[in-house]
Structure formats: structure tokens, C-alpha cells
């Protein structure tokens, strides 16, 4: 595991910015491979062929491409997106897991990116065992979050209401969360459901 490099793709049309980030990354302790794409379409293609871990993106490229971004996030849930914050766009904050500005120190940027790395590892580990929720419990949880009643959950998953109640009890025991709205926040934090799917 230690030796597998981090695959980082930089989505940025400015060659100056790309070269700068590229040299910062290669001079750091991060063991990585860096790719470059110039737009969302190239990024989508890249994600299909390479096993990318982190995207560093100029959020300018996200403008009016919400559908594509949502799709990418859904298809590659363990991807981390780091935004380059030009201080002008809200998107840098909302669509990304972290952001830095071009005036941040290389140390800061490296720190940020290596944190994304460990985050990925713990996330993919968590995907196997969300506080040891079983696959079935995760399905029940998803239904709860979507506001379904026990009866509806039973019908959808083809199990008895009694079994649904048992699953709910186990979910509460394992997570320590009892209320429906609390479980919703839990499911979002654990990336079991997409926050975009939840109405606020």
C-alpha cells in the first residue's frame, strides 16, 4: 500500500498554474502521479481509464456542468476534489472537499492534499463497514432517510415489518443516533446518501 502512488489529475487550462502545481507536488514527499486535463469532458474520459484518487480543479470548469459533476461524484464516490480558490466563485466551496488559493504556501497545499489522501483511505475502509452496518441495514437506513414508513420499507425490501423494526433498532445501537433527522445527517456524513438528494 505504501508504494502505490497517488493519482492526481489537475483540471486547469492555464499552463503556468498547472506547471506550478506540478512542480510543488513532485518536490514534496507525496508519492504521486500527476495528469493534466483541460475541461470536464477530458476529465470524464481520464476517470474511465485511470484510477484517479484526487482532482485538483479550477472551479471555473464546473460552471453550468452540475449534471456532469454530480454524475462523476456518484460514479467515483471515493474521489476527493480540491478546488483552486480564486476568491470569486462560490463553487469552489460547495463542490469541493477542500480548497486552496494560489497565494498559499507550497507546504499548506501539500498538507491539504496529503490529508485528502488519508481521508480517502479511511473513507473506502468505512464504505466496507459503516460502523459495521450491514448491507441490509444500509438499505433500511437509506429508506428511513428518504422518509419512508416501516410499512413502505418492508414492501420495498420485501421483508416483514418486524424485520424492519429490528434493523432500525440495530442501526440505532450501532450509530448511537435515534431520530430520523439525526440519521439523515449521519447518512450524509458517511456518504451513504448524497447531500444533493436531500431537501433542506
Amino acid at each position: 500500500m505504501l508504494n502505490s502512488p497517488l493519482h492526481i489529475v489537475i483540471l486547469e487550462s492555464s499552463k503556468i498554474i498547472f506547471e506550478g502545481l506540478y512542480s510543488i507536488l513532485y518536490q514534496s514527499d507525496i508519492h504521486c502521479r500527476v495528469y493534466r486535463v483541460e475541461n470536464i469532458d477530458e476529465l470524464s474520459d481520464m476517470l474511465k481509464t485511470e484510477n484517479i484518487n484526487i482532482i485538483i480543479a479550477n472551479p471555473m470548469h464546473f460552471v453550468n456542468r452540475d449534471k456532469e459533476i454530480k454524475k462523476i461524484k456518484k460514479e467515483f464516490p471515493s474521489l476527493s476534489i480540491v478546488g483552486i480558490d480564486f476568491g470569486i466563485m462560490q463553487k469552489a466551496v460547495t463542490e469541493t472537499n477542500a480548497a486552496f488559493t494560489l497565494y498559499d504556501t507550497p507546504e499548506h497545499i501539500i498538507h491539504l492534499i496529503s490529508r485528502m489522501d488519508s481521508r480517502n483511505k479511511s473513507l473506502s475502509k468505512n464504505n466496507d463497514d459503516n460502523d459495521n452496518l450491514t448491507k441490509r441495514e444500509i438499505e433500511v437506513l437509506t429508506c428511513i432517510v428518504n422518509g419512508k414508513l416501516n410499512k413502505e420499507i418492508a414492501e420495498e425490501l420485501n421483508i416483514s415489518i418486524h424485520t424492519v423494526v429490528r434493523h432500525r433498532k440495530n442501526i440505532t445501537t450501532k450509530t448511537g443516533i435515534r431520530s430520523q433527522s439525526g440519521l439523515t445527517i449521519y447518512a450524509i456524513s458517511k456518504k451513504i446518501v448524497e447531500i444533493e438528494d436531500i431537501e433542506i
Binding site: T175, R178, I185
Partner: peptide, 16 residues
């Protein structure tokens, strides 16, 4: 206090 317990757990364990 049950939901208070939820809130505390969310902050302590889950919400980043």
C-alpha cells in the same frame, strides 16, 4: 434529552 444525545453524537463522531 434523546435528540440532544443525537446532536452530541453527530458532532462527536460523524459530522466533519
Amino acid at each position: 434529552e434523546l435528540k440532544l444525545h443525537d446532536l452530541k453524537n453527530l458532532l462527536l463522531k460523524y459530522v466533519n
